[in-house]
């Protein structure tokens, strides 16, 4: 009898530490934040002393031009980097899908930008974009061309953070899509080859559709991460000039620490969280659907044979 009890408790014993930590340091804070978004709260007060203001923080955000601007900057940034990085990463994966001797070196070097601290990535790019000592303007100058206001003009600054993100994250797409490409079922490739599909048609009609599930999950993962980017931009531009590169995450941290409006910052955090939650759910639903479809196909194939 006692052993049965122990057995029933075992999974909970294994799980308990994780559940406690997640509850204390992740779920509780999230609930706390939802509550805080209905308060007029500044950092010198205890939360109990803050005044309850209902939906006022959310109403304020709806009318706030700066918030709207930073919301669109965030969306624009995420969409542009994901599209460009997917094109580049998948394209490179197709180009380099062969057994070259230097591939291991390339893959190792390619991971570096993702492993290094975002703070440091920001520093490197800020240095390279520097108006006088930066390598880009120096090169332009030595070619006799005009310098570019990389980080001091709004549009250029936006382009600059996009370029830095492409440098840092295209390898992620490349590595994942190369893995997907190389794990395509050889039987399908063989069949396509027998049917005479080559070159572009093989890629476009056979390989890409087969890779689609992985590519979509990759794009969604990257999209979620793109909404989280903060430190690289903080170091490079700190959101400026003006609001041109002020993504939501930066706006939240500024609202909390500079403007000392924790309630508004919490409301913003909630909206960002909601957005990311939807993306995660989309990814989750998509994987479930493709898994179910694959299972159905497999079942049919078995019945046929």
């Amino acid at each position: 009898m006692q052993t049965a009890n122990v057995n029933r408790l075992t999974p909970y014993l294994f799980l308990a530490p994780a559940v406690i930590v997640l509850a204390v340091a992740l779920l509780y804070p999230i609930g706390y934040m939802i509550w805080a978004s209905f308060l007029n709260w500044n950092p010198s007060q205890r939360i109990g002393e803050a005044e309850f203001v209902g939906l006022r923080n959310y109403m304020f955000l709806l009318q706030d031009g700066a918030f709207r601007e930073s919301f669109f900057v965030t969306i624009r940034f995420a969409v542009i980097v994901v599209v460009l990085e997917m094109c580049l990463g998948v394209g490179l994966a197709f180009l380099l899908d062969r057994k070259l001797r230097g591939m291991t070196v390339l893959r190792t070097i390619f991971i570096l930008p993702m492993m290094i601290a975002p703070i440091v990535v920001g520093l490197m790019w800020r240095y390279m974009y520097h108006p006088s000592v930066g390598i880009f303007n120096r090169t332009l100058k030595s070619l006799g061309l005009d310098p570019v206001p990389w980080l001091s003009n709004g549009d250029w600054a936006f382009a600059s953070i996009v370029i830095a993100d492409i440098w840092q994250w295209t390898p992620f797409i490349f590595i994942l899509s190369l893995a997907a490409l190389q794990s395509l079922p050889s039987s399908a490739m063989e069949a396509a080859r027998i049917d005479g599909a080559t070159g572009w048609r093989l890629i476009w009609h056979i390989k890409l559709p087969l890779m689609m599930p992985v590519l979509i999950v990759t794009a969604l993962l990257r999209m979620i991460d793109a909404f989280k980017v903060l430190e690289v931009i903080l170091v490079m531009t700190n959101g400026g000039p003006g609001l041109s590169t002020e993504i939501l995450a930066l706006r939240i941290s500024r609202t909390a620490s500079e403007f000392r409006e924790l309630g508004t910052a919490a409301a913003m955090s909630n909206l960002l969280l909601l957005l990311l939650m939807l993306l995660t759910l989309a990814m989750f639903a998509y994987t479930k659907i493709t898994e179910a479809r694959a299972a159905r196909l497999r079942a049919r194939a078995e019945k046929d044979s």
Binding site: A25, L26, Y28, P29, I30, Y32, M33, A36, P43, I224, F227, K228, L230, L248, A249, L250, I252, S253, A256, L262, A265, A266, S269, L272, L273, L276, M277, L279, T280
Partner: peptide, 12 residues
């Protein structure tokens, strides 16, 4: 997927 920026206010 919870970003650090979202945790900033409550964790503080």
């Amino acid at each position: 997927m919870v970003p650090p920026a979202v945790l900033l206010v409550p964790v503080f």
